[in-house]
Simulated scan of single mutants.
Amino acid sequence: MGIKNFKKQKKSIVLNDLLLNVGSHLGHLTCYWDPKLARFILNRRNKIHLFNIDKSGESLSQALRFISKLSGNVCFVNGNEKFSSISQEAAFRCLQPALTDNWTNGLLINNNLIKTNAIDALFIINGCDDSFIIKESDKLNVPVISINDTDINSHLITYPIFSNDNSLKIQHFVSNLISDVILEKSLYNFAISLKKGG
C-alpha cells in the first residue's frame, strides 16, 4: 500500500470512529424505512436499522470534498425550531447564510434568495423536515447536501449523508465539520490572495 492510500485509509478509520461515537449508525425503526437504502444498511437490532458506518463515512467524505471545491456560499437550512440554533451557530462561525425560520412553499422559487446571496448549495440538516425545500432546490438546479436517515428518500438529494438525523450530537458534528471545511477553504483563498498581492 502506498503512503497516499495509507493516509487516506487512516483518515477514513478516524472519521468512522467519530461517527460511531456520536451514534451516526442508529437509524429509524425498521417499520419506517426506504427500501432503496438497503445497500447502506448493515443490520437491524431491537427493531432499529443500523447504517453501514463505512458507507456513512464515504457519503460524508464525498459531501465535504464537494463543499471544499465550491466558489460560492453554502446556505445552512433548518426549519425545525428545536434544532435551528445548531444551523445558525455553524453558519455564523464560517460567515455563511442561514435559513432557520418557518416557511411556506415557494420560498426559494418566488424570491431572489439564491442569486442575491451567491448560494452554490444548501446544507439541510434534516431532509425529512425540509422536504419541500429539497424539491424547490431541484427545480432551481441547486445542489443539496443533507443528513439522510433510513426513512428518507434520497433521490433528490445531491450529496446525502447517510446517518441518524435525530441526534443533537450528529447534527452538531456534521454542521461543524462542514463549517470547518468552509473556514479552511476561506483561509486558504485568503492566503493565496495575500501571496499574489505581495
Rank of each mutant, 00 (worst) to 15 (best):
S61T: 15
K47V: 08
W103G: 10
N111T: 15
N176Y: 11
D149G: 13
W33Y: 13
N117C: 03
M1V: 00
L168M: 03
N117I: 03
L42Q: 06
P160G: 10
G79S: 10
L26P: 14
D180L: 07
Y32T: 13
H49E: 08
N166S: 11
F66V: 05
D54C: 06
A63L: 04
H25D: 15
N112M: 05
L183A: 09
S167T: 04
D149N: 15
W103C: 05
D101H: 02
S85Y: 12
N16R: 13
K139Y: 08
L113E: 03
S85I: 12
L37H: 04
A98P: 00
T30W: 09
V74K: 11
I41L: 11
I152E: 05
C75T: 04
E81D: 15
S71R: 12
I182T: 11
H172K: 07
D165A: 07
D138Y: 14
R93K: 10
L20N: 14
I109H: 09
N117S: 05
D151E: 11
L60S: 06
R39W: 09
I53G: 06
K135A: 07
K195R: 14
A191W: 12
I48K: 13
L113K: 02
W103D: 06
V174Q: 01
C75K: 01
N141Y: 06
G197E: 14
L168W: 00
I114S: 00
F132W: 11
L50G: 02
N52T: 00
F40G: 03
F132V: 07
I48R: 06
N141Q: 08
Y159L: 11
I170S: 04
N166T: 07
K47N: 14
F6C: 12
N43A: 03
S137W: 00
G197I: 03
N80M: 10
T30K: 14
L187V: 11
S56H: 01
E58N: 07
V74D: 07
G106M: 00
L15A: 05
E81V: 08
G198V: 12
F76G: 03
L183C: 11
G79R: 03
S87L: 09
S85W: 12
E136L: 00
I125C: 08
S154L: 11
S87F: 01
I145K: 01
